[in-house]
């Protein structure tokens, strides 16, 4: 303990003996403490100043808010039933195929992105793929793919598969990087080839989490499939977008409720699957 800290402790003990005690400040240096506090205040002021609100427009929108809330009380599943069912079907198929493809493609990328089993050039390429796929929102990727592949669920599927690659490969690579290396060495010591090592030492350690993550990603992909329709990549999002722009709030409410229900279902079953694989 430095001398300064020692004297300040003595001072605090003296004060405590007389009944004076304050909590230790979170940040020792008062300059930093005040600097950060002032910085936060300045930022908040500037940030709020840059938010300009058109109150007239808000007041006008309040009526719609009421409409929307009342629509939630009486959601309309019927009048656009065909659109809803078609959108839902598209979303679900997109979710499933994209997750399967994404996970399959993520496995080689993940192996390549694990520093401990792959050579540097492969590692860099795979990490770059992961970084690009994770940085951009699904919707941005969807825009590009819609331009390339045309409107419809195929673009959506490719988008989601691409996003899945980034997500799964990163987690898979992290898993492989901190797996139990002794087991790998034990298998290698038997004279196993690279493939045999993967199959007998790496796969058993990574598999349970891989399954759990895939189920989790399935859930995410469904949620995302509800949005990418906004830019024309098919799915329930397109139906939702249309209903909102037509001011058919009761249909929108119905769609939102369906989404919530399906997500709940997914979450419930995925927690079961994860418990079962562990």
């Amino acid at each position: 303990m430095s001398e300064l800290a020692q004297t300040s402790l003595e001072a605090r003990m003296q004060a405590a003996r007389k009944g004076q005690w304050r909590r230790l400040p979170l940040i020792d240096d008062p300059r930093w403490r005040w600097g950060i506090a002032v910085g936060v205040v300045v930022y908040v002021v500037l940030a709020f100043a840059s938010v300009d609100v058109n109150w007239a427009r808000v007041a006008e929108g309040a009526g719609r808010a009421v409409n929307f809330l009342s629509a939630f009380m009486q959601p309309d599943f019927v009048s656009r039933q065909k659109d809803i069912v078609a959108g839902l079907l598209e979303s679900l198929t997109m979710t499933l195929t994209s997750t399967v493809l994404g996970v399959l493609l993520a496995i080689p990328v993940g192996l390549g992105a694990a520093r401990n089993i792959s050579p540097l050039p492969v590692y860099l390429v795979c990490r770059a793929i992961i970084a690009v796929s994770r940085t951009f929102q699904e919707i941005i990727i969807a825009i590009l793919f819609v331009v390339m592949f045309g409107f419809g669920p195929l673009a959506g599927m490719i988008t989601l598969a691409f996003a899945t690659i980034g997500f799964m490969a990163k987690l898979l690579a992290e898993d492989i990087e901190d797996l139990d290396w002794r087991q790998v060495e034990a298998v290698r010591a038997t004279g196993a080839s690279w493939w045999q090592t993967m199959n007998h030492a790496v796969q058993p350690q990574v598999m349970p989490r891989l399954i759990g993550l895939s189920v989790y990603r399935l859930d995410i992909n469904f949620r995302e499939s509800a949005v990418i329709g906004i830019v024309g990549a098919g799915g329930i999002g397109a139906t939702l977008n249309t209903s909102l722009s037509r001011y058919e709030y009761d249909t929108s409410a119905a769609i939102l409720l369906i989404i919530i229900a399906i997500v709940l279902l997914c979450e419930y079953s995925s927690s079961h699957v994860r418990r079962w694989t562990q």
Binding site: V53, I139, V263
Partner: peptide
């Protein structure tokens, strides 16, 4: 918690833009 989690922020934004009008406030 569940309703907030199931609905993507983009959908929230779509709803809020129809209610509050376009702008940063709806985004926040």
């Amino acid at each position: 918690i569940v309703s907030s989690r199931s609905i993507n922020s983009l959908i929230w934004a779509m709803l809020l833009v129809t209610i509050l009008g376009p702008g940063v406030l709806a985004g926040i």
